[in-house]
């Protein structure tokens, strides 16, 4: 099974986008446990769609890890849960100051349903819904200073994400194409300390994957990400937030011992348009280590290969 993941964000708090666009490796009674490591680096300021020499933050990076568990309740219905942890989230400023944060990010609970399955045409449609809970740290300090929202590990906001994935397989599943889209809406953060609303987020991805030598899967994804402007405590739109990005993401996955797999992806932004002047992402890469556990070993599941003797 293919795994697709899209991660690259410069300055948004909370877990980076790590929604698995693929139907994943879980059939009925199959549990998938995966551990992700993600590194993201940002150092280039853009104004509109052009690079600018403007410098405020010199560079910014984060090292993020997440544990995700997904389980196939039925052949068509999958539930998932994810918790993220930032080992380091750092900003270095052009005028000689640095700051760092670490700690738990957000928790994501989600459900995905195979609403349409056409076996002769090998087409599947999967709507999904994810709910983000800001369980992590949102009050980190730099000495006597409360860190701003963009470097806090948790987003501090409840988020609702609705998505749709359409897949079409060719050559007995060796080659597959996917079209996916999702929209994320954040609830306004309204605490004694913070009053802020993240802009809505929209992602549209098109990708193809090819499996060769039985165990290797390569994929290439093109993703458009559109983020609306955030709004401040007066509910006014903040000018230098939000924008449109186009990412190219090559990735590879190796499956071994039938249920284990390791994947790598590199995400590179090939087009950026930002409102005002903003620090933008240079690149991101991630490793994911996964293990499928079959809780219905006596039964043959949709994703289980027949045992060869």
């Amino acid at each position: 099974m293919l795994y697709i993941q899209a991660d690259a964000q410069c300055c948004a708090a909370g877990n980076p986008i790590s929604a698995d666009g693929s139907p994943g490796g879980t059939g009925k009674n199959m549990l998938e446990v995966s551990l992700l490591y993600l590194h993201s680096y940002s150092s280039i300021y853009y104004e509109g769609h052009q690079k600018t020499d403007y410098k405020y933050i010199d560079y910014s990076y984060f090292d993020f890890s997440s544990l995700r568990v997904s389980y196939g309740i039925t052949k068509r219905l999958k539930v998932r849960a994810e918790i993220g942890y930032f080992f380091s989230k750092a900003q270095s400023f052009d005028f000689g100051y640095d700051r760092k944060a670490n700690g738990f990010g957000d928790m994501i609970l989600g459900v995905q349903y195979n609403v349409y399955q056409n076996t002769p045409l090998a087409i599947d449609i999967f709507p999904s819904f994810d709910f983000t809970l800001p369980v992590g740290k949102f009050d980190q300090m730099n000495g006597p200073v409360v860190l701003p929202i963009d470097i806090q590990p948790s987003s501090g906001s409840f988020k609702y994400n609705a998505g749709l994935l359409v897949s079409k397989r060719f050559m007995n599943g060796k080659f597959a194409t996917f079209l996916s889209g999702n929209a994320e809406f954040s609830q306004r953060i309204n605490t004694e300390r913070t009053n802020y609303k993240y802009g809505n987020l929209y992602n549209i991805s098109l990708y193809g994957s090819y499996t060769f030598l039985r165990n290797f899967t390569t994929a290439l994804q093109v993703r458009t990400m559109i983020r609306d402007r955030a709004s401040d405590n007066n509910k006014e739109k903040i000018n230098a937030t939000g924008g449109t990005y186009l990412f190219l993401t090559p990735q590879v996955r190796y499956t071994f011992f039938k249920y284990w797999s390791v994947g790598f992806l590199f995400e590179y932004p090939i087009y950026k348009y930002v409102n005002g002047k903003q620090l933008t992402n240079d690149y991101a890469f991630s490793f994911r280590f996964s293990r499928n556990i079959n809780f219905a070993k006596k039964k043959k599941t949709l994703f289980e290969e027949p045992v060869k003797r």
Binding site: Y97, P144, V146, P148
Partner: peptide, 12 residues
């Protein structure tokens, strides 16, 4: 002492 601001950057 504790310092905070909604938007902006404070350094001790």
């Amino acid at each position: 002492y504790t310092w905070e601001v909604d938007l902006g950057d404070i350094f001790p």
